[in-house]
Design a binder for these strands. Structure first.
Lengths: 216, 216
DNA sequence: TAGATTGTTAATCGATTAACAATC
DNA sequence: TAGATTGTTAATCGATTAACAATC
């Protein structure tokens, strides 16, 4: 087995791995298919077969020539590569209607799907009326408790679902508390220290892009 | 003024336009800045100045050499290019907790911001208990009413916030009803007829990408 | 073995950056 | 005019595709 050379892998490649993983999840669930060619995987993921092979080759050799990829083996390797083979504990900051929806959705998946390892273990808000309230078994804490809870619960990832004005402040506190990856739903470009990764899910921005394609 | 040559413009370019627009919105709101260089716009949007100029040049000449871009003029031109200068009526299908959050968020922005032209005018769900319920002034309708309401209300865009299994069916019905742009929150790759644009907001996929960057 | 499909290298394509002439 | 900054062309960079030898 060829060793992976991480660090050099481009974001474009990483962004496709969850697509492949979803296809494998579905096939593993269905249980029919044992083997899968890059052709088939590509079709289902919406990617060319050559690109599938090239993407996977960055991380090792997972297929057999003339045969294809073993669904369960490739799935478990992708889960390992994405660090989804172990539980990842997540904090969610901002329990407004969006935050609440995100919390519920992910909590539910975590409880239902046996190996959905994204685990929201803490909720935070600044509204004193919300603090103490329990959502799907998780209490809402004040932001002051962030450092202690990140430490105690082993939180490594966070979602920010607060108003735009508050997002940078929250990001600062998350980074200070040691959170290494942030999914930001506020429409602002966050500045974070090196070593912290941010992805922005800019929902209104997506709508604005789509509007471009409307004629007139 | 040089005429735009639309159709050839890459998605990479279009995806940055909302970033520029947001910067211009903020500056216009603040009211301080009248003129802006590609340098400054780039910094605020997280893009190189050369790329800012190149992106804008696809659509025309909006700046003055030696001077820069007029904030209000460029803003209004970008709004026009993105078709955000006129109201865009949107249907939202699936009023679960995520759908509800999306509806509330966008309704509120539409009511508060004078020229936020993304207007959710109809909500749809299959749950008979929800049908008839009113969310922020918009009633929830049954999916059967989709064609009539799309037509009557002039709906051109839609958001899908239903469970993964139901998403393709909803997309088919939206396309059949004449909706031309779809923002899909379900973790599936939708197939749509030519002329219909789909963007996928795969929130769990984003988290999975982020997980890659966690060490160990 | 013959057929199939991988892993990988080389060719192509497209997007970003650098540079600069045009011009305000 | 001198200084600044655009719009645009050329150079670079990176990502995707095509092709094929390796091999199951």
């Amino acid at each position: 087995m060829v060793m992976a050379r991480p660090g050099k892998i481009s974001e474009a490649v990483v962004r496709r791995l969850p697509l492949y993983l979803r296809v494998l999840d579905e096939l593993a669930e269905a249980g029919q298919t044992k083997l899968l060619s890059s052709q088939e995987l590509g079709e289902r993921a919406g990617v060319t077969p050559a690109l599938v092979r090239k993407d996977l080759a960055w991380f090792g050799e997972f297929g057999k020539q003339g045969v294809g990829y073993d669904v369960h083996y490739l799935r478990s390797e992708l889960r390992r590569i994405l660090h989804l083979d172990k539980e990842i504990r997540i904090a969610l900051v901002g329990v407004g209607s969006l935050g609440m929806a995100l919390a519920r959705y992910h909590r539910r998946r975590y409880l239902i799907e046996p190996d959905f390892n994204l685990h929201i273990v803490a909720l935070f808000d600044t509204d004193p009326r919300k603090i103490g309230e329990v959502v799907d078994g998780v209490p809402i804490s004040s932001l002051g408790e962030l450092p202690v809870l990140v430490d105690r619960l082993g939180i490594r990832m966070a979602m920010i679902a607060v108003p735009a004005e508050a997002a940078q402040g929250v990001a600062d506190r998350l980074a200070a508390a040691g959170v290494k990856a942030i999914l930001n739903f506020a429409p602002v470009k966050l500045k974070v220290p090196p070593g912290v990764h941010v992805a922005t899910a800019d929902l209104s921005g997506e709508l604005q892009c789509l509007a471009y394609y409307l004629d007139r």
